[in-house]
Simulated scan of single mutants.
Amino acid sequence: MKGKFIVVEGLEGAGKSSVIRLIKETLAAQKIDSISTREPGGTPMAEAIRECVKHNWVEDVAVETELLLMYAARLQLLNNTIKPSLANDVWVVGDRHDLSTQAYQGGGRGVSNEVLASLREMTLKGFKPDLTIYMDVDPQEGLKRARGRGELDRIEQAGMDFFKRTRKRYLELVADDPAIVMVDANQEMQQVHNKVKNVLLRYLS
């Protein structure tokens, strides 16, 4: 079966990691080879960029700096891992992709749609996921779960208003794109997993 790119999106604490494991297990049960990636990150250089993005720097980090780092890491991952895997009929399950930048840097940071569209065209050149699953979680609940995992990174410390703006933008993007399926991640995890598995099996059929 031709390789497909499936992306799991959502705020911190939405349960993306466990859903990605579920997707890989479901694909394996269907005899489909897959790998998982994360953004930013996924290659040696992109992982180094991830550390720059997440680090709690003493200096101020310009919004434009953060934005350009995100696309630099994404392009490295796309060219070195995602596209070669798909060309070899290996499915790729991504922890975030470009929808995150549109929501976080667009909605959260206030970067204009025109700037985002220009960078997207320059780097992705029309490349899009085949299926995106957006895990919708209330920001307060999501950050509570994230704190339970340990110390928050620089982006996770951006504040509640930032995450409310980010979620609002996510919901707008989901409403405009039929290739994105929304799952209520405020539910018990077993309910979430059941929903995701049903979505995936429908897609496979």
Rank of each mutant, 00 (worst) to 15 (best):
A62Y: 04
V63M: 08
E64A: 15
E64M: 12
E64F: 03
E66S: 02
L67V: 09
L67K: 01
M70R: 09
M70T: 08
L78E: 01
T81A: 14
T81S: 09
S85E: 10
L86T: 12
A87T: 02
D89K: 09
W91I: 09
V92F: 08
V93N: 04
G94R: 09
H97C: 04
S100N: 08
Q102C: 00
A103P: 02
Y104Q: 03
G106E: 07
G106V: 01
G107K: 12
G107A: 10
G110A: 10
N113R: 15
N113L: 12
V115Q: 05
S118M: 15
L119W: 07
M122C: 11
M122E: 04
M122V: 08
K125Q: 13
K125N: 08
G126I: 07
K128C: 09
D130R: 10
L131G: 04
T132P: 02
T132L: 00
M135W: 03
D136V: 11
D136L: 07
D138G: 06
D138W: 01
D138R: 00
Q140S: 15
L143R: 00
L143N: 11
K144S: 14
K144W: 01
E151A: 14
D153Q: 05
R154T: 13
Q157G: 00
D161Q: 00
F163P: 02
F163W: 08
K164F: 14
K164A: 12
R165S: 11
T166N: 06
L171D: 15
L171K: 15
A175V: 03
A175F: 00
D176W: 01
I180G: 04
M182E: 15
D184C: 01
A185H: 09
N186L: 13
Q187W: 07
Q187T: 07
